[in-house]
Design a protein around this nucleic acid. Structure first.
Length: 943
RNA sequence: GGGCGAUUAGCUCAGUGGGAGAGCGCUUCCUUCACACGGAAGAGGUCGUAGGUUCAAUCCCUACAUCGCCUACCA
């Protein structure tokens, strides 16, 4: 047997055991026959990510499940991977190259993407290192990346199939545009934030020369340059006469009509609203209803476009706002302004204020996919846990809008669509709208006389040509997006219709979430029918935060059902957000971020994991507090020292089964029964995703039952018992310890492995030991033990409250009220003496009340502590008085109940019985206390 | 605007239709041969407010207050 140091030091063992597990393949599923599959796919963190508290909680929960299921005889796959995180990653690398004075346009698409891959190779694995620190038992041999070859094939397959079915289409409409990221965003990617804005009132003069004007209110005066109407409510008396008339739109020289529309709220502002169909979602709808022109006055860069007029073109949108206000003021057309709080959409990646822009984008027609995804939650094929999320989920799914999936960035899955300029008709060319631009290089002779072969931008820069030279000599082909798109599984090099080699690929890439939507099956090998796919799909449980319920979970449901014809997972455990100790959301800008790695450093991964599990109550945010982590480090130390105690006793385990032998004492049987109960509670907790219950249950058992009671009770036997008694106790201690570290292992993998290997010198790993299940309860032992516990607590209570010095070795007398109580107490006199520091304990059914004794009244016993002259009678009287008051209060309450006729008539029989029993117990107790008070008072009087 | 959740001991939070629990903190005592990262004994709560349902409400219902979150087109 090995020696343990006095205190547990996590840093010395964690990395060693992790390497041991990984090298020996313990994280790989065990394909042994007969094992049921249990699979989890990790919510892929962004490659740019580093581990934050959310990941830590998420990973800990998954790991607890994975380890528990492994120990419970499942073949477990926990599949790890990362997400390419299109916009986020592109932003990071763009900042990186900006330091070298580069930008992606100068580099060219291919060179830039290569740069991102290089970056990914260097930094992308960071988070996996961190997950290893936490102890995550992922099967790293199956690690995937949303942009790797296999997953890209899956993306391509899905796109083509949806395209062929008409579920993917292009349309020109308003979308949320981030002028900084220079891309479209889906509705979900816009974060709304309340901001203190201003509401400006502008005067639009009537065009009839009457000198009258209409006042409109707006928060965005610069958009007035793109107004194409002013709308009023059709019933609005104030404006009825004016409907159909024209207004002079200031600063533009254009005239716009006054239209009537139900959507206008006559109560708001002046009841007249300016309509800018090309830059506002409401106005877009109104514009379409009334056939208004769409004038785009703001460009992709967030600056004013030429259509805004010469005076404003090129200005930043906010500078333009100022200038418009100045100009209107000068014309006397500013009616006024006032503060106006409103919510403004921001890019979820860079926080820039989004701009609604009219562009052509790719969409997924989502309603047909959503139907089935709703049904599977309704009929329970997928369970959301906690189910309070059901309504949120249904609400969102039922109102779901088509999903904009194209992004104008480079890092991602490029849309597998080509356009043929030679197939474009004249009407295509003339149509206003988006063009796809392609820099096209033909073999050319440069100014210095050298000649250059044609090629892509990247190839040419690689050949040493400057950006200027390339751009100056290139031809730009523009293909209107209205040309029929050609969608294909394999890259096209020529037009399948006309054979033209000039076809241009759609430059857009797919929304990152498009590929993550396929994660549960693409990672398992789909579209091939692999062994993994057959074994592990559908996955068992998805563990995720509610913040990506719609981004990710809902979309996985739709895609899984569509392409696998089966739900992607059975259970979705939705955990809360980790907040700081004050309940604030952790964020870099607030500086209240707790770094999980620092926590692991300070307290060890086990303590940190256990805290997260203990915090993870369903349906509530997690408030993280370092003090609690510290507390759980103490807990590990407690277990560690309990182990030292067991080892130091120096009695090796005999190997005899503790459940079939007949030489166990009451405390032994009791702790075994409590162990069984605890194992059951932990199993139940885990299977119901009540991680806090499971954690608390094992914590309480180890500390307060095993250490506080059983180990203390074991001492008399170990120090003074017979050889047989010693061996029985030692065997019980070892047995409970061994089982307890198994139960604890999913929560605390490292320390449990350490104890398993060093104390029990076992082969293999605790990871493959069976999780304790179905251990026998011993209700007799638990009931009998209550007498012993009562006797000890009663005596301790007297000692504590009467402040009897611990050095004073008292004598105790216990008058028992039943044969069972007597038998139990008699059998455990040594333990009572040891735990209460009594030099003598007398037990019997008819002991006389000694004079000058303190007393405690318990079920089936009166405990006397004779203090021969030392008793502070007043203190004891006060103590008993307090006790009596409590009992009397309860009795009064019960009596009130019984005197209530309706209660007697209507309360169910079992409740009635229970209350009656309670009353009779209390009455007995009351009488005994009163007797003792009377006796004591008499004794006091004699004094 | 709509929806959801929260409100329980000093703090952080569990919990249940039959007079409320934990951890930390606090008080008192104890360096007793696993652990002072320890042990023992205590104090501490009209379970947000007001109504209602019920024999019985901290728990169910309604309203209100406060605080969060999600969602929405009020210019």
């Amino acid at each position: 047997m090995n020696e343990l140091k006095k205190n547990y030091s996590p840093e010395e063992i964690e990395d060693r055991w992790y390497a041991f597990w990984e090298e020996n393949g313990y994280f790989k599923p065990d394909f042994q026959a007969g094992k049921e599959a249990f699979s989890i796919v990790i919510p892929p963190p962004n490659v740019t990510g580093s581990l934050h508290m959310g990941h830590a909680l998420n990973a800990t929960i998954q790991d607890i499940l994975a380890r528990w299921k492994r120990m419970s005889g499942h073949k477990v796959l926990w599949l790890p991977g990362t997400d390419h995180a299109g916009i986020a990653t592109q932003n990071v690398v763009e900042r990186e190259i900006a330091k070298e004075g580069l930008d992606r346009h100068k580099m060219g698409r291919e060179a830039f993407i290569e740069k991102v891959w290089t970056w990914k190779a260097e930094y992308g694995g960071r988070i996996f290192h961190q997950l290893r620190k936490i102890g995550a038992s992922c099967d790293w041999s199956r690690e995937r990346f949303t942009l790797d070859e296999g997953l890209s094939r899956a993306v391509r397959e899905v796109f083509v199939r949806l395209f062929d079915e008409g579920l993917i289409y292009r349309d020109g409409r308003l979308i949320n545009w981030c002028p900084r990221c220079h891309t479209a965003l889906s509705d979900l990617e816009v974060e709304y934030e309340d901001m203190e804005g201003k509401l400006y009132s502008l005067r639009y003069p009537l065009a009839d020369g009457s000198g009258h004007h209409i006042v409109v209110a707006t928060t965005r005066p610069e958009t007035m340059l793109g107004d194409t109407a002013v709308a009023v409510h059709p019933e609005d008396e104030r404006y009825r006469e004016l409907i159909g008339k024209n207004l002079d739109l200031p600063l533009t020289g254009r005239q716009i009509p006054i239209i009537a529309d139900e959507q206008v709220d006559p109560q708001f502002g002046t009841g007249a609203v300016k309509v800018t169909p090309a830059h506002d979602f409401n106005d877009e709808a109104m514009g379409k209803r009334h056939g208004l022109p769409f004038i785009r006055v703001i460009s992709e860069e967030g600056t004013m476009s030429p259509e805004a007029g010469e005076r404003y073109a090129g200005l930043d949108r906010y500078k333009c706002r100022k200038r418009v206000i100045e100009d209107l003021t000068e014309l006397g057309l500013m009616e006024g302004e006032k503060k106006h709080p409103h919510s403004v959409g921001h890019c979820y990646r860079c926080k820039t204020i989004i701009e609604p822009l009219l562009t052509i984008q790719w969409y997924v027609k989502i309603a047909p996919l959503a139907e089935e995804a709703i049904r599977v939650v309704e009929d329970g094929r997928v369970r959301l846990i906690p189910n309070s999320w059901d309504n949120n989920y249904f609400g969102w799914m039922r109102e779901i809008k088509d999903w904009c999936i194209s992004r104008q960035i480079w890092w991602g899955h490029q849309i597998p669509v080509w356009y043929c300029p030679d197939c474009a008709t004249e009407s295509d060319q003339q149509k206003q709208g988006d063009f796809i631009e392609h820099i096209f290089f033909e073999p050319m002779t440069l100014a210095d006389g050298s000649s250059v072969m044609g090629g892509t931008y990247a190839e040419l820069t690689a050949a040493g040509l400057s950006h200027e030279a390339i751009v100056g000599n290139s031809k730009i082909i523009r293909v209107p997006r209205t040309v029929k798109p050609l969608c294909a599984r394999e890259d096209l090099t020529s037009c399948p219709h006309c054979g033209s080699g000039k076809i241009i690929r759609d430059p857009d890439v797919l929304d990152t979430w498009f590929s993550s939507a396929l994660w549960p099956f693409s990672t398992l090998g789909w579209p091939d029918t692999t062994e993994d796919l057959k074994t592990f799909y559908p996955t068992s449980t998805l563990v995720t935060g509610f913040d990506i319920l719609f981004f990710w979970v809902a979309r996985m449901m739709m895609m899984g059902l569509k392409f696998m014809d089966e739900v992607p997972f059975r259970d979705v455990y939705i955990h809360a957000l980790v907040r700081d100790s004050k309940g604030q959301k952790m964020s870099k800008s607030k500086g209240n971020v707790t770094d999980p790695l620092i926590m692991i450093d300070k307290f060890g991964a086990d303590a940190f994991r256990f805290s997260l599990a203990a915090f993870a109550a369903q349906g509530r945010d997690v408030r993280f507090s370092e003090e609690r982590v510290e507390g759980y480090r103490y807990f590990i130390n407690k277990l560690w020292n309990a182990t030292r105690f067991i080892l130091n006793a120096g009695i090796p385990a005999s190997g005899k089964d503790v459940y079939t032998r007949d030489d166990l004492a009451l405390p032994d049987k009791w702790i075994l029964s409590r162990l069984s109960a605890t194992a059951g509670e932990v199993s139940r907790g885990l299977s119901q995703y009540r991680f806090n219950d499971a954690a608390n249950s094992i914590y309480h058992f180890i500390w307060h039952e095993f250490c506080d009671w059983y180990i203390e009770l074991s001492k008399p036997a170990l120090y003074q018992g017979s050889e047989v008694e010693k061996q029985a106790v030692a065997d019980t201690l070892f047995h409970v310890l061994e089982k307890v570290i198994r139960i604890l292992h999913p929560f605390m993998p490292y320390v449990t492995e350490e104890l398993w290997k060093t104390v029990f010198e076992k082969e293999g790993s605790i990871m493959t030991a069976a999780f304790p299940e179905g251990l026998p309860r011993d209700v007799d032992a638990e009931r009998e033990m209550a007498f012993l516990l009562d006797a000890v607590t009663g005596l301790r209570s007297i000692r504590g409250e009467l402040n009897i010095a611990p050095s004073l070795e008292v004598r105790a007398e216990i008058k028992t009220g039943s044969a069972e109580a007597e038998r139990v107490l008699r059998g455990n006199i040594a333990a009572i003496m040891k735990l209460t520091r009594a030099r003598e304990v007398q037990i019997g059914p008819d002991l006389a009340r000694p004079e000058g004794a303190a007393v405690a009244v318990k079920d089936q016993m009166e405990i006397y502590l004779p203090l021969e002259g030392l008793l502070d009678i007043d203190a004891e009287l006060a103590r008993l008085g307090k006790e009596l008051a409590k009992v009397e209060e309860s009795i009064a309450f019960l009596n009130k109940k019984f005197s209530n006729e309706s209660f007697m008539k209507k309360a169910p029989q079992d409740v009635l019985e229970k209350e009656k029993a309670k009353l009779s117990d209390l009455t007995g107790k009351k009488e005994k206390i009163e007797e003792n008070i009377a006796a004591l008072a008499a004794a006091g009087g004699k004094r």
